[in-house]
Design a protein around this nucleic acid. Structure first.
Lengths: 349, 349
DNA sequence: CTGAAAGCGCTAACAG
DNA sequence: CTGTTAGCGCTTTCAG
């Protein structure tokens, strides 16, 4: 009954009655203590006495109070939240990345906040917003202009994942070497000579690297690309589209796809168009998602530790010091879509 | 120069020097105006004069100031953020749901905040946290206990998507009828008698409904289920597992799968085990993701307006009034995995 | 062991 | 047209 009816300049009707959540002040009043005491109780501060503590606890339970994380954030200058910026949420790749980050976030008690830019032009604004609401930021390569990354990195903790940056530590894989190794397999083991790349390098650093690796291998073997890359998106549907294009022009010996989903699209569509895989054309993927193993023929691809990428990045974004460039190992996974014989152990019949 | 050096009780070293972001006060000082004026400028308040405005603008640009959304949120009592609670982020279904919600969020200028509960036991705490940081909440059916939904709904705007609730408006499809219709097709058109359901009803309201619809149709036709449901998860990999189980026991006439991914897993694995689809066994999916059309044979399934579900839910969570129960229409999509002949128009050769 | 009060960044009513 | 100031919900120093 200290501060009561005498309406204050901007008397906010709310102190009593609204269905709004109770504040620390409501609890203090109900328990007959000061807000400081309530705050202490919510923090298990040992300095608050048994009887008082019980009274406060009771009031908290009765009114259903939970401290506002907004208020806390403002006071702490820390939000206990990790932000992740991705091009989109579709597909298993990003899901895995998020899960990796989540695993470390959970054990540190921080919430996660994902933003899909979808190549929207106003994405930068959203990213800035996100940056403010988080203690750290994971940014997927290609989603945010370099200048903006520099700006964000200057203001807070940011780490780039699956990409490079001069301004922030990056965690990535060596997609270029991996793609080269994969392509070499196609050339050296299977003797393919006419190879095409499927994927759109522009805008995706990952795809660019893979395309470069592909070309590295061709160059080593003194081979020419069988035409321009087939510029398609990274999803299954695009793969199906690519299949039609391939079908309508000359079929190369092998198609090196920018990721598994694209490869699956080809894999599923080409047979219906009369082309056998791998006899008529070999196909490879990249990432080693679960689809790769399910497909038939099973997909030869490159395994990437995607969840691990996410986890490392999260740790970094949350304060662990990171090398400017952490590169995680990939592994070539040979299955049958390249023309290799089925691993006898795979036929578990 | 009003409030100056006289160190305040708790002189926070920061006002000058830290690499921290500038605050509204820094701008005010730099431009020689009051914070109110700065605030007005950031709001394009017409009341601020040309010359002053320019000075403030200049300071803002020079120091790289952006208003803290945390501070704003606290003052506005509104965060301009929409929360979405899902079981997980994997799979095209949730990606589509999010995109639907995103589309309406974007046009209203609100940020989106996704939380994957992953069936974690402490998920409730995360959800509460999220609730505080958002103006509205979209909750996927089965992710949060009913009691908690009631609690959240009492405190703020929440809408349940792909599920039901007594305490919050729901937007959903009639999965039960759709599943029944699909199953009837299998029975009446193809004459199948021994049908099994693939999916785990427990924990997923969606799956439960589909299973019930499946049984409704069997009952109408006076048929018995060909054994218990095959309890598997909703992803492709689980489908592959289910395929082995089916293979090792007796093959039914048809397998009605809880979603497309599961069906694709079966579809891709069964042929390798020596079973032709649809000759030896018919398979159907649910959702009509892009994979359904790519698969071979193409998947007979039920189309759901997933993005639309997300969009409606978002509108509701953002303040639009919603019926207690909005049910969106589904559509049976007949392709070849059920045994129907290929639509001639599909062979675009 | 507890309370008063300043301050986190911002907005808006009110006064000038 | 501009400044002062209380207040949003919370934490924490400093007194008592």
């Amino acid at each position: 009954m200290t501060t009561h009816d005498a309406q204050t300049p901007r008397s906010r009707t709310r102190s009593h009655g609204g269905s709004s959540r109770p504040t620390i002040r409501d609890i203090a009043r109900a328990a007959g203590v000061s807000v400081a005491t309530v705050s202490r109780v919510t923090h298990d501060d040992p300095r608050v006495a048994g009887e008082t503590k019980d009274r406060v606890r009771e009031a908290i339970d009765r009114l259903g109070y939970t401290p506002s994380s907004l208020g806390r954030a403002l006071s702490y200058q820390r939000t206990n939240t990790l932000g992740i910026v991705l091009p989109g949420l579709g597909g298993p790749y990003f899901a895995a990345l998020i899960e990796g980050a989540e695993s470390v976030a959970v054990e540190r008690g921080v919430a996660i906040n994902v933003l899909g830019t979808h190549l929207r032009p106003d994405a930068v604004a959203s990213v800035r917003q996100l940056a403010e609401r988080t203690d750290g930021l994971i940014i997927a390569g290609g989603t945010v202009p370099d200048a903006e990354i520099a700006r964000l990195a200057a203001a807070g903790r940011v780490v780039v994942v699956a990409g490079e940056s001069d301004d922030a530590p990056a965690v990535l894989t060596d997609g270029r070497s991996a793609a080269a190794e994969l392509t070499r397999h196609l050339i050296e083991v299977h003797g393919h000579r006419r190879l095409s790349f499927v994927g759109e390098p522009a805008g995706s650093p990952d795809t660019t690297l893979r395309y470069e690796g592909f070309r590295d291998a061709l160059r080593e073997a003194r081979l020419d690309e069988a035409g321009e890359p087939l510029r398609y998106g990274l999803d299954v549907r695009s793969g199906a589209l690519a299949a039609r294009q391939v079908h309508e022009s000359a079929l190369p010996d092998a198609l090196v796809c920018a990721n598994d989903e694209l490869a699956i699209g080809l894999l599923a569509t080409l047979p219906g168009l009369g082309h056998r895989i791998p006899q008529d054309v070999a196909i490879t993927g990249f990432d080693d998602q679960s689809l790769a193993e399910i497909a038939s023929p099973r997909l030869t691809t490159v395994h990437q530790p995607v969840a691990e990428l996410g986890a490392r990045a999260a740790a970094g974004a949350l304060g662990e010091t990171l090398d400017p460039r952490t590169v995680l190992p990939t592994r070539l996974v040979i299955r049958e879509s390249c023309g290799c014989a089925a691993d006898p152990e795979a036929i578990t019949d």
